[in-house]
Nucleic acid binder design. Sequence first.
RNA 1: GGGUCGGUAGCUCAAUCGGUAGAGCAGUGGCCUUUUAAGCCAUUGGUUCCGGGUUCGAGUCCCGGCCGGCCUACCA
Length: 481
Amino acid sequence: MDGSDQVAVRQDKLLRMREEGLDPFLTNWDQAHVSTEAIGLLPEDEEQGPEVSVAGRIVAFRLMGKASFLKILDRSGKIQSYVRRDEIGEDQYASFKKLDLGDFIGIRGPLFRTKTGEVTIRAKEYKLVSKALRPLPEKWHGLTDNEQIYRQRYLDLIVNDDSRNRFRGRSQIIREIREFFWSRDFLEVETPMLQAVSGGAAARPFRTHFNALDCDFSMRIALELHLKRLLVGGFDRVFEVGRVFRNEGLSRRHNPEFTMLEAYQAYSDYRGMMELTQSLIQHVADKAIGSLTIERTEGEPIELAGQWREAKYKDLIIDAVGQEDWFNLEKNEKLKKCKEMGIEVDPELEDFEVTNDVFEKVIEHTLIQPTFVTHIPRELCPLAKITESDPSTLDVFELCINGQEIAPAYSEQNDPDVQREAFMIQSGEETQELDEDFLTALEHGMPPAGGMGMGIDRLVIFLTNAANIRDTILFPTLRPS
RNA sequence: GGGUCGGUAGCUCAAUCGGUAGAGCAGUGGCCUUUUAAGCCAUUGGUUCCGGGUUCGAGUCCCGGCCGGCCUACCA
């Protein structure tokens, strides 16, 4: 037997175990402790500790003649074990030496401290509980090939500590989002992902077919219209965390399926949502990340403490273009100005879209510190209430952090006639389907409410300082291999 | 979709002007009872992403394809 095929070598080991009547895939082991918990059982000033029983995957293996060190990885982290031939016996040590990196084993024994100070289990007993037939990626560099990281995420999670910690962080973030809303008496609900009409956002949906009813369905593109039906139904504080699907391109900031949080609170408005959103993110950063100051790979850290900046959309635009009368200019003059500023703008765009291009291309990426952008032009959102003092703008904000839109919030439109009219204007654009059933619901009366939506993946990007949305999604969408 | 860069051993990476495909880790055999990317000696392992072409000769040059990264486009 040579080392030419590592899988064959391992299969051969497995075969030999079975010939000896040993089961390489046990049904169980008493995982009485996880590694970090076990480490905590040996007080700082002591050399010997209690007996523990742990289990995990072998991720480091240092064999010496008659004694060995190994590290196992479990859900909480890693712990080292020390295995001596004179303690577990000659036969046991011989089979121990045949274990491979990647195998799952159980270990039982007392804790002690090595001469370098590391808390270690002195094995009295070990057992192979599950054999690994394929080798692990290289131990020092880990797995760096992006494609393999995404397609075989389990390998990434085994060998890349950063990645493992980031996904733990994501889970904590979502847990704390729930805690926050529960503490404010919101009801968590689930609404349909399969919809006859997908509305609530201007995005192309994924289409599918329901055989039993012989009709076409779409995957949802937003949670909004169903959550508002629940406001009509009397659940006057609701939230949902769930997947939405948009049939659009992939990018560093876009995955076709992503996780959205939406929350609606009756008898509140966009100002109330501002307080809620800021408190939510501060709560999550504090509890899940442990700090309100978020370091970034480059540039100044993001400071989440205190009261966040508010800025009017128009002021930001005027400031960016350096021209007080921007909103009085003809479209052609705006296009000309854009060209001077070196911004490429499609001349076919509507007037307000040209302005919004300036926002997206010049301003958005500069908003690193949390900023509520308010008084957004009414054309940009058909589901919000119009500002009383300025009918050209809406009672909404768009929260930008880390140079990205993170969360829009509105004083929600609850006048069915105004809502229908706004929908009709947009329905020509094909991206927003008219949802008659939703309008019927509004006609039954919806309490005034503030609503907020947040892209969880983007929140996780900046809270965990990830480079890419794909580093925050366990199994990002890829072309089938 | 467009531009651009890449795909070499299980993993991380080399390979000069087109001239015998290499190293580290992992594996295999041996030595080694407190190691920390353990160490020392020996050693196995290749459809160089796939298919064509140019050439005496292609990992390297050309054409096409597949997959991916980045940028861009689409994107409330």
